[in-house]
Write a protein that binds this DNA or RNA. Structure first.
Lengths: 255, 255
DNA sequence: TACGTCGTTCCGCTGGACGGGACGCGAAAT
DNA sequence: ATTTCGCGTCCCGTCCAGCGGAACGACGTA
């Protein structure tokens, strides 16, 4: 047993998969063996075993190996069960401490936004995740709406938009305009639209395919978030969102 | 060396990954060991090795394992390098033989549709893949356009739409209407719009996340595809597209 | 408090995995 | 056209990695 408690041949096989993931499409036995410091008969045998389970496949013509369909399926499943909260938590805490405001991560849950991660500036406040909030009246809600098909927004309008404050957008035409702005600018704001004294900005968090999986929010009570401060907060939020996307394994798309 | 030339511990580790993919989110050491007929110390050791490479992760509270971030990344990479043509070829050939028409699979390539797989009714005609055709004047082109943001369609209209025949749609307003119909019906038709005597229908092929990765086309010369025959061909094409999606590892979305 | 189950760790044993070398094949060089 | 080279696969003797069994600590339940 080498390397702590790792099973050597499994560790080698895993390295082969990861090396294939890092290569441009495909690689040969000899090349992979060289890259990983393995004997080519060892690499060949390990690859043949991975191929048996569909984790790799071999091109009939060139003899080179690439990742197989079973990896696509496992990847899809892994993404569905991913613990986005754990992935994002460190970044939210770091951002909250450095800008001295509350940060949250919201995902779409039916017709609402769900807080899946939360951090206040002290990093020691009580966990307020698990809460729902409306889509039309919050900054992350607008980010999530902006990335839905327009017919979904129209469907929601038929249920009606609750006017939480005098600033809440309740007319469908004005909301659609606002969502167009969100798409154009790549971030959303909400000034006293859900809670009278709460201002917030939000940016999208992408998975590795430029799909929006969450909205990252910076929020504050009182007049701590004024329009003049928005550009700085948006930039900081985007940086944090890009780190989260990178952890998921993607490349942050620019809106 | 058991089971042909497979490396036993690698085969076992791969089985663990696949079992995790088949489970609802996560599973424990003892459960996985039972399911695969392994000793639990063996399962524990193999899982620890997979965890070391990020292929699985263990929940801190429950001790259960789930697929890890490295699998999400590998899955994304595998999808990008997937050989869609090989996956789809059997289905295209089967469909072509059974309906006695030519079938193709088209993907978006810049501003055109690219034939990545082709089969005629005999299954023995020469391979006509690798060819490009216009988006606005072909059935698969319309399917691909219908799944792009509208601003992409408008951008294309600025280049202009070549009138290949007297039936080609060249006005942007008429094309947008046609694309709305495609989205609504879930399939596209083209009657002599690119080549005067060629009629075709096309349906979307999804990956596992309801993204359209290709358009499957049934085409014929002369009057073999009349409007009365469209429903049957669309149904057959959808069935073939669903098989392809299932092979990729997804669930076909109903439009 | 006692019991059962889980996941982890340790250890002796042995057969599975290894590297070395040979081989056939196809492409490149001559 | 022939020769050379590199690739991937296969075979085989060797040896230590991986195995199962047992014990242990932790945790949840009765």
């Amino acid at each position: 047993m080498l390397d702590g408690n790792a099973v050597r041949s499994v560790d080698r096989a895993a390295s082969l998969l990861i090396a294939l993931g890092e290569s441009q499409g495909e690689a040969g036995v000899t090349e992979l063996a060289r890259r990983l410091g393995l004997h080519k008969s060892t690499a060949s045998r390990l690859l043949a075993t991975l191929q048996k389970r569909g984790l790799v496949e071999q091109d009939d013509d060139s003899g080179k190996y690439r990742l197989g369909l079973a990896v696509v399926r496992l990847g899809g499943h892994a993404e569905r069960t991913l613990d986005l909260r754990s992935i994002a938590m460190t970044e939210l805490e770091t951002l909250a401490r450095s800008i001295k405001e509350t940060t949250t991560l919201e995902t779409l849950e039916g017709d609402t936004a769900l807080t899946i991660a939360y951090s206040d500036a002290s990093g020691m406040g009580r966990d307020r995740s698990g809460r729902s909030s409306p889509l039309h009246a919050t900054a992350p809600g607008k980010v999530l709406l902006a990335n839905l098909p327009e017919r979904e927004v129209i469907r929601l309008s038929k249920v009606g938009f609750t006017p939480y404050t005098s600033h809440t957008i309740v007319r469908i035409d004005l909301l659609l305009e606002e969502l167009a702005r969100v798409r154009k600018r790549g971030f959303a704001t909400a000034f006293g639209e859900f809670e009278p004294s709460v201002n917030a900005i939000s940016v999208p968090v992408y998975d590795q395919r430029t799909s929006v999986v969450a909205a990252l929010e910076v929020r504050a009570s009182g007049n701590r978030i004024l329009p003049s401060r928005v550009p700085e907060l948006v930039e900081r939020a985007r940086d944090a969102a890009a780190v989260i996307t990178d952890r998921i394994g993607g490349v942050a798309a620019s809106l």
